[in-house]
Every structure is written in C-alpha cells, then in structure tokens.
Design a protein around this nucleic acid. Structure first.
Lengths: 208, 208, 208, 208
DNA sequence: TATGAATGAGGCTTCATTCAT
DNA sequence: CATGAATGAAGCCTCATTCAT
C-alpha cells in the first residue's frame, strides 16, 4: 500500500499520479513500465515517488486495487441481491457492467486484463493473495443456486462453467473494444444479448 | 528468420538454444526476456547469439513459427477435409488438438498465448503479417457452411461466434493446464465434451 | 541541449566534464568517441552521464555550441560594424580571431573542424539546422559590398570566392597549429599578412 | 600490404573487394568501417578476409595506395616534364587532374580526403611513413623554380604558399562535387580558371 | 586455400532505487 | 515533506580477430 504521505497529497496531485501511472502500465507491462517516465510525466521528483510508494510494485498493486474498486461501482445496483434475480439476468448485468467499465476506464481495464493474463508473473500471485475469493468462486455459488432453481442444466461442470462465464466476460470486453467506431449503447446491448443467448442455448439447432 | 549459421549448427545445440529460449519467453514476455540470460544458460558467447539471429525479435518470431508448425502436426488428421465432417466434430477435434499440443509443448503454447494476448505489442502485428488468414477467418467459413447445412442456428452473429470459438479453444487449454496433476486423457476428453455440449446447447434448460 | 541537471552541477564538475569530453572528441571523431571513456576519466557513474545529457549526441552538440560561443568572443570588437571597415581589414580581423581562438582552445577548434569536414555525417546536418545563415553567406554579403565599393575585382565568382575565403581561414588555423613551437604573436601576424597579400594580389608578378 | 593470397585472386574478385571496401570507407571513417559489412557485401568468408589482409588497417592502407596510383594516372601527361611548362599551367593541370580524378573515382577521392583531414588519426601517420616526400614538398620545389624564373613574386613564403596551393586543390574538388547537377567539363574548366586567376592576381583591384 | 563459427570486450542507453540536502 | 543527483547493474547489439576444419 502507498505510504501515508501519498494520501496526504492534494486530491488533484494524487489523481494526476494515478492517471499517468495507468497510462504507463496500459502501454507497458508491469516490468517494462518505467518509474522514470512516470515521474517525468507527472513533473514530480524521483525522490518524492519513493516517499509516496514503497516501490514500483507498491504503486502497481494500488492501481489494481483501484481498478477493482472502480469496477465495483458499476455492478452495484443489481448484484446487491443476487438471489432476487434470474441467473441469466445477473450474468447479463455483469457483462454489461464489465463492458461499461472498460469503456469508461480503458486504462484500468487494460491493466487488469494484462495482470490476469500473466498468471505466472510475480504480480499475479501477489494480487491474488488479497483477492482470494475470486470472481470464479462467486459465480460457482450463483451457478449452484441456479441449478437448484432449475434455471441451469444440472449436468454441467460447475467449476468449468464458472471459469467459462468469467472468461467470456473478459472476451466480451475485448470483442467490444475491438469493434472500431462503435456507437456505444445499442450495439453493445445487442452483442451482450447474443452472447447471453449463446450461453443459454448454445449454437446448435434445437433438437439437433 | 535465423541466419544460415543457426541452421548449420548441430541439431543438439540448436535444440538447446530453442529449449532455453522457450523457457525464457515462457517465463518473461518478449520485451522482458533477456538475451543475456539465454546465452548464459546455453553456455554460448553473446556474440555467437548474434551470428545465429538478427536480433532478439528474430529469435522470438522463429519460436512463434516453430510453435505454429508444431501445432499443425496435431491437427492434421481430421481437419484435412473439413467438409466431410460435422461442424461440432471439427470443433471437437480442434480443441483436442489444441490441448494435446499445449500438453506436450507447454512452453510453445505459453508463448503463443502470450503473443496473442498482447494485440498492442509490436510483435503481434509482425506475426500477423505472415499469418494473415487468421484462425478467426477459418472458423467464419466453417460456421457459414454449418449454418447452410442446418447444423448451427441461423440467427447467430457469425463473426462474434467465430471469435468466441477460437477464444474458447484458448480458454480450454488454459483451463486444462490449470487443473493440476491431471491424468491426461480421459479427463481431458470429458472436459472437451462438456465444452462442446455447452457450445451446442448452452447451459439453459430446454424450453427455459 | 543538456538537461537541467547538468547546469545545476558545480561549475568545477561541469568544467571537468567539458574538458574531458573535448579531449575525447578531439582525439576521436563523434562516432568513435566513447562515453565509457569519458565517464571513466571524469570519475562519474555511467548513469550520471545520462542524467546530464540526453545522449552522446546531446553532449557533442553542446560542445559545438560552446565552441561557437567561445569563438564569438574573439571576433566581436571589430566585426560589429562590418560596414565601417575595409574588406581586407575585416578578413584579416577574422583570420586573426580564428587563429587566436584555435590557439587558446585547440580542442574546441579541433572538434569544430572535424565536424565541418564531415559534411556527410549525421552530426553536420544537425548542427546546420541551428546555424542556418552559415559563414559562407556572411562573406558573400561582405564581398558584394566590397565589389560595389571597388575594393574587390568585379569579375570574381562571389560564391566561390566566399567559399575560398572561409576555407582559407580554416587552412590558416591548421597551418598555424601545424607549425610547432611557435612563439605566438609576431609569427602569426606575419603569416596572416602574407595570406592577406596572397588573397589581395595573388602570387603572380605584377603585369605577368 | 595485402598478402600474396590476395594477389593470386582472380582480377574480378580483387576488384569486387576493393570496390566494396571503398564504398564502406567512403561512408564510414576507418575506425567505423566494418570488416563484417565488407565481407558480407562481398559474399566472402570472414576467414578469407584475413587470408588476404593482415587486418583492417592493411586493407585500408592498400586502398590509400591504390588511390594514389589512380590519381597518378591523371596527372601524368603534362607533369612529366614540369620544367618545360609555365608554373601556373602546371598548377592548372594539377587542379584539373584532381577534379577529374575525384569525378571518376569519388570513393577513392573521398577516402583520401578523409585520411588527410584526420592528421591525428593513427592512420595518417602510417600513410605518411611511406609517402614522406609529400605533395607539399613537390610544390615547394616548383615554387622555387617559378620564383627563380620570375613567374612568381619573390616575397612569398614558399612553405606556406605550397601548403595553400595543395589545399586549394582539395577545396576545388570539394567545391566542384558540392555543385549539384554539374554538366561536367565546361563548368569545371571555368571554375579552375577562376581559381587560377585568383591564385595569380588575388582579388584586390590592380593598384588598390 | 577457403571457410565460418566462436569469442568476449566494448559500444550506447535505461533502470529502480538511495540518500544527502 | 520535497528534492534530484548519484549509482552501477543490466539491457541489446557490433566489433575485429582467431582457429579448427
């Protein structure tokens, strides 16, 4: 975690540092991201950096945490009471939230993705220490309820399906951001709905 | 491409260099992978490295190409005549091939994955120059045929579905390698079949 | 231009670095001059060098600029009002100034000469970007006035003559520094006067 | 000097090596010129190079010698009996010869120039060991005769004037090659004649 | 005689971090 | 709390030359 000095900084400066750092780590992976460049872009002294953060990793982990917090704000309204909603509605909500987040905060989304993609990197493990109850576990729970309620086929492999659902979320974000010049909104909703239909019914013809 | 020098090397030495390099780039992304470490582990002089390869990137692209060639040997038997098979059979074959490849050559699979994950990196684009007709395009073709034959629902978004199928392959590999201490074979086939069922019918209950 | 860091250095250290660097680039051309050697002779860390200068070229261009500034201090007194003096007096002044400069700062003179001699080198062009109105152009102007005033024959080729005059200045410096163990002063003045006579009257006998 | 092996080579190959080497050293100074690049461009083995030449310097000195020999072929006709000609005619001949040489063999001219410009370089001294009776000395002799015959003013400084005449030759070559898109021939002769007039009469007005 | 792989020193540059002020 | 100069290891790459075949 950043040192106290960092949190004593004027909001504005803190924001600047985060923005610049996100830009850096969205452009370069953690190990390649340069403290030198960050402090230069921020216009702060190199020494100051090390009075705000233990080291480069400290900053990075903080950004990852910020990303998580920001993402949380997108999924709050409906997910609060997951039991009061249809399983596929929840998934839909989650996907839309993910895409909206990625749309509003592409930098944060990028570094999260990068970090998750690098499961061997030293960073991944350090993040996971804090976030033990991963998204997968959350969806495993949801899936169990959904199966119990008869919304989802009972013969699925819960763990694998949860993995798939979470991954599809990531893929949906990527697919969406890959589509250039998208009029955000309608198209995105359509895409999510197709994805949902896929999840629900597959792509085989009925009775096939 | 590596220089002639490299191909004149005794098979054994060439193998060593590739193995060490794969190990390096499986552990570190391209930019972080260290030529210094590679030559040290190989026990060759730094100068020698540059008599084999133009530069670090030359080596890396060669490894990617090797990965592609190795992977090809896994998918040959059935995929040769794609028109003579059921769509889902093809997909199944492809998934199994991918997983077998990843199982036998985890290093090569890892660097391929890494490279594909980093669509912004300078490397990705360079690879794509050679491999223009990407996997996605291949599956779009298959999907169109399958829709025409009534094997696949006609109301799907072809491009997105192709994207999804290819990505699921990647995910399947990851999921499989993530499962520790797997008795290879039975479990894997089961997993693929579940994935296929998911692809085909989704996870919603019939009539739901 | 060097970074702020460099100008914040104690005068003494800055001087040392410049002296050492001049020595290096007077002995070796730009591309052959070694940053390693420079930092070693200065007793500073290699990393420090790059906190003072963008790169090797940055240092070199700075030295060239310094050379220009130093040279300027030699030619100020008379050249300020070129129109108030006889053409050959101006030339004479200029030659003496050049030689004095070369005598007091042989290193700076040497690197300037080297740079001007290598018109193909990447450095030359970069220097010329700043110094666009070259010395040649200046003398072309003077020559035109001199022709108009009847001090110089009207049938000369202005451009070529300007080129020659500037080059002769360079040659005079070289000739002078080539003469070993020169009691500076008298001999030099003599030499310049001979050169001037040559410029003015040629070496042919009158009426020849 | 190159080894015997070099001279046993087929004329064609020897020529190729010289051409490529000239190209290299015209583009880069001696120390920067790369044996690697030369052998690569020639398509010969690196080992072969060292069977033809002692080392890089051996090749370079040979090229310089070749340049001298080639230049000689340009000045033979008239200069053979220098005593039978007017001094300024000789100079004129010499200048024209120099420019013709530079025009026909720009590469050889370039490396000669470069070498002469770098009087501090280790190469210069080595060349001078062989060529002791330099061009300067030759002209000093001519000048003395010319003075004796009354063709040249008696009050000149012989050594300096010789130096000047030789240097002007170099300058004339540079000036000529600097002029772009020159229809060779007429313009060049004109230029030389102007230069000669300058040498002879200077640029001051008669009686000035 | 021809070859070309091997070498290791040296080239420039970037880095994260420390520490005295 | 801010500063920014100092550091030296490590980064990639090029070099002229040697030597076994």
């Amino acid at each position: 975690m950043p040192k106290e000095t960092f949190f004593n900084l004027p909001e504005e400066k803190r924001q600047l540092i985060c923005d610049v750092a996100i830009e850096e780590f969205a452009a370069y992976a953690f190990e390649r991201g340069s403290v030198n460049r960050i402090v230069a872009k921020c216009g702060i002294a190199k020494g100051s950096f090390y009075q705000y953060f233990e080291d480069k990793q400290d900053l990075f982990l903080y950004l990852i945490r910020l990303a998580g917090e920001k993402k949380l704000t997108y999924i709050s309204p409906v997910m609060v009471n997951p039991d009061q909603h249809d399983f596929f509605t929840l998934i839909r909500e989650m996907y839309v939230a993910g895409i909206r987040f990625a749309n509003d905060h592409p930098g944060y989304a990028e570094i999260s993705k990068r970090m998750l993609a690098n499961k061997e990197g030293s960073i991944y493990r350090k993040v996971m220490v804090d976030n033990v109850p991963t998204a997968n576990a959350f969806f495993e729970g949801l899936l169990e309820s959904a199966v119990a309620r008869g919304e989802v086929r009972a013969d699925i492999d819960i763990k694998m399906t949860a993995f798939m659902i979470v991954s599809l979320n990531q893929l949906a974000m990527e697919y969406h951001t890959g589509q250039s010049a998208d009029v955000f909104g309608e198209n995105m909703i359509e895409m999510v709905d197709e994805l949902l239909a896929f999840l629900k019914h597959g792509i085989g013809v009925r009775g096939g």
